[in-house]
Amino acid sequence: MKKTILFLLCFPLLAGCGVKREYVRMRDQLDYLETSQKKMETQMTLMDSLLRAQTDITYQLNAEMRTRWGSLNERMMSMDQQYEDQQSRTMTQALPLGASKPDSKGIAPPAPPDKPKDNGSKPDPKQLYDTAYLDITRGNYDLAISGFREFLKLYPSSSLADNSQYWIGEGYYAQKKYQEALAEFQKVLALYPHQDKAAAAYYKSGLCYKELGQTPGARESWQTLIKNFPRSPEAGLAQDRIKELP
């Protein structure tokens, strides 16, 4: 009986021992879990901050790249522009006025041998051209047209021949004589298809067609312009005009 009582008394103790062991084990496990969770948390924060930093770097690289690319592109375009300006400048100014351009493709009327320094009969080509152009800016269109016709008669192979032909068209256009203007702009395209007034002449031909109510003609002129001179300012304008067509 006493033994039983003792046992009974001891049991909880014994059992307690077992429970305690179990408890310790669980504590350990919990501790472990906790630390590992903490570890994971710190690792996650670390990862997160790393990721954030990475994002910043990516953004920055992106911004950097775009900006650099943009400015490079701009620099390239400005160099392009300078080259183009210089080209058109040499075309209109630096070349001796009598010299024919290389790419006339034989369509241009054959150049009569220019009599050198025939001061008596022929007016100075630059002066003749400038006077006619000033008449355009002042609105004396008929005077301007006859001035440019005179220039073309005297200096048909001049580097300013295509310009003169263009301004004749412009002289008519300014007076709203669209049929005549169209004919003159078409001459620019027929005689000087690769020279610096060609894109503008295509554009103006389209405007003439539009004014004359001939939508297909307008569309075709502008489409040809976009195809042949995709990088010209006129190509961009033509795109806008095509959109406006009925």
Binding site: T92, A200, Y203, K204
Partner: peptide
């Protein structure tokens, strides 16, 4: 400033026939 620095240009009032004036 398309050549990289501001310069004077001419064009027809419809945007075509662009020319640079100052060098």
């Amino acid at each position: 400033d398309r050549p990289g620095s501001p310069q004077i240009y001419l064009m027809d009032a419809d945007g075509s026939n662009l020319r640079r004036l100052t060098y």
